[in-house]
């Protein structure tokens, strides 16, 4: 049946298989907030593949020995577009030495530029950054007495996201705050690769519970050995 054929085309064996055609110079979106909800398997595969000169759009840059930090260690990243890059010494060293180009943008602007791409809109207006160096060179428009910056939609070759569950049609469900940037990045990639903790047959997920409809997802695979490292383990006393 045709449906089953199309289904089979979306399911990839593993991360190596899914990122096989990501080449030097690619522009990537990577989901996650800090180390929460990051595509661990795909990052490991990109490190193994040693692809370089990448532009990475991601809220953070990982830590020295995990997440995007692993790609920074191997000097695979040419440019980072992020909102917050603390917690990473190698990143700071490469940025201050000029080896790494860094564009810091407000977190909501980052989210909304992804959203715009996924919604098929070329640009959005936001008040974030008005009167600051973020506004340099950007068009300002006044609506109802308040100034807004024109910010353009991102244009990424690949969006790489992590979800909790997914089905063979590419439908995705995220879990807790591991959702973060993943849904709008999933919508924004020219090619979207989703790694999931559990891959189930189409029909197993309640259609009412789907966060990302499968039309946005081109490749899906079940990841393995998730470390899910905690950046700031904080507890209270009983």
């Amino acid at each position: 049946m045709p449906q089953i054929e199309s289904t089979m085309k979306k399911v990839y064996k593993d991360a190596t298989d899914a990122v096989a055609d990501i080449n030097d110079g690619a522009v990537l979106m990577l989901g996650g907030f800090g180390l929460c909800g990051i595509p661990e398997n795909c990052i490991a595969a990109l490190v193994a593949k040693a692809v370089k000169d990448l532009t990475c759009i991601s809220n953070n840059a990982g830590v020295d020995d995990f997440g995007i930090g692993l790609m920074l260690q191997q000097k695979q990243v040419k440019k980072m577009v992020s909102s917050y890059v603390g917690e990473n010494e190698e990143f700071e060293r490469q940025m201050l030495s000029g080896e790494l180009e860094v564009e810091l943008i407000p977190q909501g602007t980052l989210a909304t530029r992804c959203m715009a791409a996924g919604y098929g809109m070329p640009a959005i207006f936001t008040p974030a950054g008005i009167g600051t160096e973020v506004a340099a060179g950007k068009e300002v428009r006044n609506f109802k007495g308040k100034d807004y910056l024109l910010e353009e939609a991102f244009d990424a070759d690949f969006a790489i996201v992590k979800a909790w569950k997914g089905d063979t049609e590419g439908n995705l469900i995220y879990r807790a705050t591991a959702r973060n940037f993943n849904p709008m990045m999933a919508m924004a990639g020219k090619i979207t690769i989703a790694e999931v903790e559990e891959l189930v047959p189409a029909g197993s997920l309640d259609p009412d519970m789907i966060h990302t409809p499968g039309i946005f997802v081109h490749r899906i695979f079940e990841g393995k050995n998730y470390e899910k490292r905690i950046e700031q383990r904080t507890v209270r006393k009983k």
Partner: peptide, 14 residues
């Protein structure tokens, strides 16, 4: 020190 603005610029603008 260049860590980034995170969500602060969005918050203060709105």
């Amino acid at each position: 020190m260049v860590k980034g603005m995170g969500g602060a610029m969005d918050l203060v603008a709105s």
